[in-house]
Design a protein around this nucleic acid. Structure first.
Length: 507
RNA sequence: GCCUCCAUAGCUCAGCUGGUUAGAGCGCCGGACUGUUAAUCCGUAGGUCCUAGGUUCAAGUCCUAGUGGGGGCGCCA
């Protein structure tokens, strides 16, 4: 029987055995300090020559990053340590020595390709450990929210015969000689189940064959799609808001250690506790173009300020670097020199990032200023728009022509449909897309034709309107996108254990 | 598919307007140190400067093409 780091506080002053891997190691003549990780957490363990004897101390000296071992010793309270405790070992048993582990303690010292090629090992590093724990709590929060409200979880099929939003984005497979596609949405099946159960949600993998090589796209991702009978779009938006609040607050409550490891600004996440602004599409267009201010903030002005700040920042950093370099050349103590060299490297990284901004922001401003009403927002438009808000924003009543066939038209305004997109703050973009569904079979028939979809594939779906059609609504949430936002990550590739995206099938 | 930036040691990078034997930090290996927090200190090893052409007295540095990668856009959750 051994103990886990997460519960080590209950063993204060007692003997405990921990089993895990070496996450970091430092040694002096008579003490070896190991940061042990066991999956539940990280904890410093001290191996003293006098405590374990010469033979075991020699064995411990051969340990290096990611060696595996069991350590037995006394649990001592020590406020200086992360977690507040330390293990003073009296015995150790090495399971396996590890040599030349290819990932450094600080993963930021690697390029993204080096890490992606070693994803199976990268998952062990502290940041990735934290991300996967946050992901786990988000998943728990999703189930908790819906189950508490009486929703029934359903599994939609992965093999599908119908292409509900066009075939170019579908992965085709051979299904006993017939062409079948990997599912890109469980929604239509969800609608069928909602007519049986009332309130349901699907939670499963989704596949998109888009060659989208961006930070917000994966070829395989997980989607949550609730569907509610007798809901209109207002109720849909209420549900979305309550749902996001619940999930984010759960992570804040359950994952303080993880969010700290990720250096996530929790105050920004707490912005979800404000009520979410609800903006009709036509107003969102005005805000985007800079024709309408929000809370005294102008979308275009915010971008221009960002651009100016980036330009100024580059100049400041260059000046700072030059000053430090001349100071180093003039001569300084080794410690001070190293500090300054590290600082210069950091300043250069900042410059590289700001240079990207200087290249990109003018394009974003152009795109926003010249945005044509009636079109869909692009990635940069979403960023520009959300920067004027502190909370997630819901944009609703979208142009009919850019949305899917099943969305219900706004009464007396056939050019707009009752769709809603939730845009996350801080530039994380769209994380939820939903709508009230069309209930009128004649309108659906017309739209399926207009979208040039194969009518035969939708016969079963039309039955839902033939037999007891009711108002209903639903939405889809991309799991990885909310993980990304929650963890404050640059890219979706870190939000899922083994990402499948354009150009990446291994490991 | 388009735009843009980049490719130098195991890793992350520096190498200014071309100019003798190509540098640093980390890692590895050896040594020092009674408690370290990305430990520190001393030392050793480690490089066909992505590939193929070209310009030049001289190319890591300039030009052309190719290959590979980062970022942005499109498509979307």
């Amino acid at each position: 029987m051994h103990q886990y780091i997460k519960e080590i506080a209950t063993h204060e002053g007692q003997q405990a055995t921990l089993k895990g891997w070496v996450a970091n190691i430092r040694e002096s003549k008579t003490n070896i300090f190991i940061v042990l990780r066991d999956g539940t957490g990280f904890m410093q363990c001290v191996i003293g020559l006098d405590d374990v004897g010469e033979a075991q101390f020699e064995a411990a000296k051969r340990l290096s990053l990611e060696s595996s071992l069991a350590l037995t010793g006394n649990v001592i309270k020590d406020e200086r340590q992360m977690g507040g405790y330390e293990l003073q070992a009296t015995a150790l048993e090495v399971y396996s020595y590890s040599k030349d582990y290819p990932i450094k303690v600080n993963e930021n010292e690697h390029g993204v390709r080096h890490l992606a090629d070693r994803r199976h090992l990268w998952l062990r590093s502290k940041r990735q450990w934290a991300v996967m724990r946050v992901r786990n709590q988000i998943i728990m929060g999703i189930h908790e929210f819906f189950q508490n409200k009486g929703f029934v979880q359903m599994d939609a099929p992965i093999f599908t015969g119908n292409a509900c939003e066009g075939t170019t984005t579908l992965f085709a497979t051979d299904f006993f000689g017939e062409e079948a596609f990997l599912s890109q949405s469980g929604q239509l099946y969800g609608e069928a189940m909602a007519m049986a159960q009332g309130l349901i949600y699907t939670f499963g993998p989704t596949f998109r064959a888009e060659k989208s090589d961006t930070p917000r796209h994966l070829a395989e991702f997980w989607m949550i799609e609730p569907e509610m009978a007798f809901y209109d779009n207002e109720m849909n938006m209420d549900l979305i808001e309550g749902f996001i609040k619940h999930v984010i607050n759960r992570v804040i409550e359950k994952c303080p250690v993880e969010l700290e490891a990720l250096e996530r600004d929790v105050e920004k996440l707490k912005g979800v506790n404000q009520s979410f602004p609800r903006v009709p599409y036509t107003d969102a267009v005005k805000i985007l173009r800079g024709e309408q201010d929000v809370n005294g903030r102008n979308a275009i002005a915010v971008q221009e300020a960002d651009l100016a700040a980036a330009k100024q920042g580059i100049e400041d950093n260059l000046k700072d670097i030059a000053e430090r370099e001349t100071a180093i050349k003039a001569g300084m103590k080794k410690g001070a020199r190293k500090f300054n060299e590290a600082k210069i490297a950091a300043l250069r990284k900042e410059i590289a990032y700001m240079e990207e901004q200087v290249r990109n922001i003018p394009k974003w401003i152009e795109s926003a200023k010249n945005f044509k009403g009636g079109e869909d927002f692009g990635g940069s438009d979403e960023t520009v728009l959300t920067r004027v808000f502190d909370a997630p924003v819901m944009v609703y009543n979208w142009p009919t022509k850019i949305k899917a066939f099943y969305m219900k038209e706004v009464e007396g305004d056939p050019d707009h449909v009752k769709g809603v997109d939730l845009l996350a703050p801080e530039g994380y973009g769209e994380i939820v897309g939903g709508s009230e569904r069309e209930t009128d079979i004649d309108i659906l028939l017309r739209k399926i034709k207009e979208h040039e979809l194969p009518m035969s594939e939708f016969e079963w779906y039309l039955d839902l309107r033939r037999f007891g059609s009711v108002p209903h609504a639903g939405f889809g949430l991309g799991l990885e996108r909310i993980v990304r936002w929650c963890c404050g990550l640059d890219h979706l590739r870190e939000t899922i254990p083994f990402p499948r995206r354009y150009g990446r099938l291994l490991p």
